[in-house]
């Protein structure tokens, strides 16, 4: 809902965060900079998921599929001698090309059927990467030679740009007529259709946009880890992470995924190297608590409780 005051305020916070992130490489060591890079990665992925699932209510359990496709495309084009930025664009492009037909096919499915179909697609991606040995080297995976990789600063700023771009995209859609129509689909698809919303087209556009981002993110990610194999490209934990981050922060909102990503990543950083299992268990507990007790996410506590919140996931 239009709220000039809040928008002005969060806008300022946004500007401060952008400036901080741009200056950060000056004062941080490689490891700290890599940590921020991963925060941006999660923000970008979360916004992508937010775009389709938070806004339309079509819950995807397999958006990592597009991440995996982008990662493989990025790795392959890089080894075939393309410059890094072109490899990233190819990653996004291939994810987009796949998303168009997949969107038309899967978005006919409702509720759990869509969720399960996406989960299945992610697995199909993993299977293709495993069995297409000539191109992907199968289970061995692909390693990228260090001289092919762009510098950490390049990767950092690319990932930052993706996170920022994804956030601005969500913010833009949020305020547009398109965003309103997506939310109408979430509330009641039949009713939306009856008042003249082209639901199929809207859903597919949202889906394609939300696939494009993980595609590009995946390509940058592979340049950061310099290694990819079927299970790391199509990792199930990445799906969990996207969902938890968005729900924890506040689904269907612009700031929710950012707050969620910040909190979850810090938690993870404190835990993962020492207690990999504890870190995921903590995510599970977070997910349960949020689903049962805090359906609006962290952001709903921060906001004025009396305000009606039409933009929060039911």
């Amino acid at each position: 809902m239009p709220d000039g005051g809040r928008r002005f305020n969060s806008g300022w916070i946004g500007v401060v965060l952008v400036v901080l992130a741009s200056l950060a490489p000056l004062g941080l060591n490689d490891y700290q900079q890599s940590f921020l890079l991963q925060v941006f990665l999660v923000i970008a992925l979360a916004q992508a998921w937010n775009l389709i699932s938070g806004m339309t209510g079509y819950v995807s359990f397999g958006h990592a599929a597009f991440f995996g496709v982008g990662a493989y495309a990025g790795a392959l084009f890089l080894t075939w001698g393309f410059p890094w930025w072109l490899a990233v664009m190819k990653g996004a492009g291939i994810a987009l090309l796949l998303a168009v037909p997949l969107g038309f096919l899967t978005l006919r499915l409702r509720g759990p059927y869509f969720a399960i179909a996406m989960l299945g697609l992610n697995e199909v991606g993993r299977i293709v990467a495993t069995l297409w040995v000539d191109v992907t080297h199968g289970g061995t995976g692909l390693t990228l030679s260090p001289e092919l990789l762009p510098s950490l600063d390049v990767k950092y700023f690319t990932m930052f740009a993706l996170a920022l771009g994804a956030t601005l995209l969500v913010a833009g859609i949020h305020r547009s007529r398109f965003g309103l129509e997506l939310r109408a689909i979430r509330e009641d698809e039949e009713a939306a259709e009856m008042v003249g919303v082209n639901t199929t087209l809207n859903k597919v556009i949202a889906f394609v946009l939300s696939a494009l981002i993980p595609g590009a993110v995946g390509a940058v990610y592979v340049m950061y880890t310099s290694y990819i194999n079927p299970s790391s490209a199509f990792e199930h934990a990445r799906n969990i992470e996207m969902i938890v981050v968005v729900l924890f922060g506040g689904s269907g909102t612009v700031w929710g995924p950012i707050i969620g990503a910040g909190t979850v990543m810090v938690l993870r950083e404190l835990l993962w190297a020492q207690f990999p299992a504890a870190h995921l268990a903590a995510l599970g507990v977070l997910l349960l608590v949020v689903v049962l007790y805090l359906p609006g996410g962290l952001i709903s506590i921060l906001r004025d409780r009396q305000r009606t919140r039409p933009d929060v996931l039911r």
Binding site: V59, A277, L286, V291
Partner: peptide, 19 residues
Amino acid sequence: PMLTSLLATYGLSIILINL
């Protein structure tokens, strides 16, 4: 809504796996 139960049992499964 279906989503709520999917996510709740999903959370339960993550907890059980990691326990």
